[in-house]
Amino acid sequence: MSNILAIAHKELKAYFASPIAYIVIGFSSILFGWFFVNLLYYFNRLSLQAGAGMGGPEAVSVNDMLIGPLFLNVTVILLFTLPLVTMRIYSEEKRSGTIELLLTSPLTDVQIVLGKFLGAFVLYATMLAVTLVHMGFLFAFGNPEWRPVATSYLGMLLMGGCFLSLGLFVSSLTKNQIVAGMVTFAIFLMFWVINWIATFTGPTMQAVLNYLSITEHLNDFTKGVIDTKHLVYYVSFIVFSLFLTVRSVDSERWRG
């Protein structure tokens, strides 16, 4: 365990010693803010219409009309930023030769992979933590339900974990950061749009595509529902990606 923490700590230090952490957190926060403001204006208009009795609903829920859609929109930000976080993880070590230090130290492959995943995950959690400020405003000036907010964050953490573990795996395949970044982005995007054609296919195919879609599973979380179906999807996605990474690191040794 201390080995995993040592690696996670090193990874975090690497993010914060280079501009990566500040760029990723900074720009994600700006974009999040923009999405937030946009949805807030929209929500205000809806509320006014509802209050004026212009034929709309009696009252609008801040959870359903603002927080839920906000998190669903924000997945787009992750799509672009998380490949930037993960593309360096293994590629950089391979290119600079520091991988030799890790592989000749008394560490197991699993410890290395978990340490690296944990480091990236903490960075991502920090990025999410900044958005708590926006939630703070909603709680200060409105009366949202806190439970759906909490489950939304849980869902976001799990979904981010999927992206990160997948990115980690792709990074373990190549020395080239650009290649790692591009491939990761393409795969993320594929998982994001995979159910777009679902409505045009048969019922079986539709179910399969919807199940594969990484964002489809976030819906229930934003509504305050923790469904084991989604938990199983996210957790198994993460575990499987990490497993592939361990195998990839191991096979790399054999190939030399």
């Binding site: 090193k10 030769g97 000749t104």
Partner: peptide, 27 residues
């Protein structure tokens, strides 16, 4: 085993002390 590879395996963004502390931990 202590191993010095052909290219010293250094992390460019870490200070010498931080780097050696990290190595001490994982060793």
């Amino acid at each position: 085993i202590g191993y010095l590879p052909e290219t010293p395996p250094l992390y460019p963004d870490m200070t010498v002390r931080d780097y050696l502390t990290f190595v001490a931990k994982i060793k």
